[in-house]
């Protein structure tokens, strides 16, 4: 490359990037840095009162905060249940539908994507009605089937509330993984599959030995996005239970919102954000490791 051309490439490259960089740096990178910095301060919403540096004060307090611990445990329950379930469920659905005619395939893909597109608020309010103690269909159906004797206050009972949230979360989480798995399965190298079949491999063997290996990158991607999504479960909690009853559905994301925007403890909220990011990062790294070893 001639120096003149190199200069032109440099300048034009940066000019094309500039508009995007302004937004990326301004609204993603700076808040990211601020999140870490503010977590070492006693800071509030008011811009006129100066923040007070307290070192690891917020972090120390976090581990002595029973609500935070409870939120962390609940978050891990949500992640632990939803991630494997979403992966297995969407792989199964995808494996059933990916060979179907185009029309039928689109139909199922759309149906399982619907709860995502419907939006968290619309989805949540209708589930709230379905879970309702007096007018909800669940109590009606379960009583009709003789499974329960009297109405259960699903969202108001600490025994059930978290599971009710997880069920809704699952229906809004499988859409994207199904789309991804369908595309991955139809891209599996057909010659390998045929060769194995000629050699007399069973369907089961073909799946585990060939297909499963080839869709591994997709599985990994799905694991990571589902983990991130489950960690950030928020709208459901805020609209259905506000973390209650008795912190039974408190999650880290909801507690961050609560401390930052209801108690106006910005530094404390950011410290939780940092912890959350670390957990997500560790979990993603672990998933990459496991996938590589296999």
């Amino acid at each position: 490359m001639s120096p003149a051309l190199r200069r032109r490439e440099n300048i034009s490259g940066y000019l094309f990037l500039l508009p995007s960089l302004v937004f990326f740096v301004g609204f993603v990178v700076i808040p990211m840095i601020m999140c870490v910095v503010t977590s070492f301060y006693d800071a509030n919403m008011n811009l006129n009162t100066p923040d007070v540096f307290i070192g690891f004060g917020n972090y120390v307090e976090l581990w002595q905060d029973p609500v935070f611990i409870k939120a962390l445990v609940n978050t891990f329950i949500i992640v632990g249940v939803s991630v494997p379930f979403v992966c297995a469920f969407s792989l199964w659905v995808a494996s059933v539908i990916y060979k179907m005619r185009e029309g039928l395939l689109s139909f199922f893909r759309i149906v399982f994507y619907l709860p995502v597109v419907t939006g968290s608020v619309a989805v949540t309010v209708v589930w709230k009605w379905m879970y309702n103690n007096y007018y909800g269909i669940f109590n009606h159906l379960l009583k009709g089937a003789g499974i329960i004797d009297s109405n259960i206050n699903w969202l108001g009972d600490p025994k059930y509330a978290l599971w009710c949230i997880i069920i809704i979360l699952l229906t809004t989480s499988v859409g994207q993984p199904i789309v991804l798995y369908v595309s991955a399965l139809s891209n599996v190298d057909q010659s390998l599959v045929e060769a194995a079949e000629v050699d007399g491999a069973t369907n089961f063997q073909v799946f585990w030995r060939i297909k499963w290996r080839q869709i591994m990158p997709t599985t990994l991607y799905i694991l990571v996005i589902t983990t991130i999504n489950s960690f950030q479960c928020f709208a459901l909690i805020q609209l259905l239970t506000s973390g209650g009853p008795n912190y039974a559905t408190e999650t880290v994301m909801y507690y961050i919102y609560y401390t930052a925007f209801k108690l106006y403890r910005f530094g404390y909220g950011n410290a939780m954000g940092v912890i959350l990011a670390i957990f997500i990062g560790l979990l993603s790294a672990l998933q990459f490791r496991l996938a590589k070893e296999k």
Binding site: M32, Q232, F234, I256, G273, A277, G281
Partner: peptide
């Protein structure tokens, strides 16, 4: 990174 973490700052 989790998008919502940056929303508070």
């Amino acid at each position: 990174l989790p998008k919502q973490v940056i929303l508070v700052p």
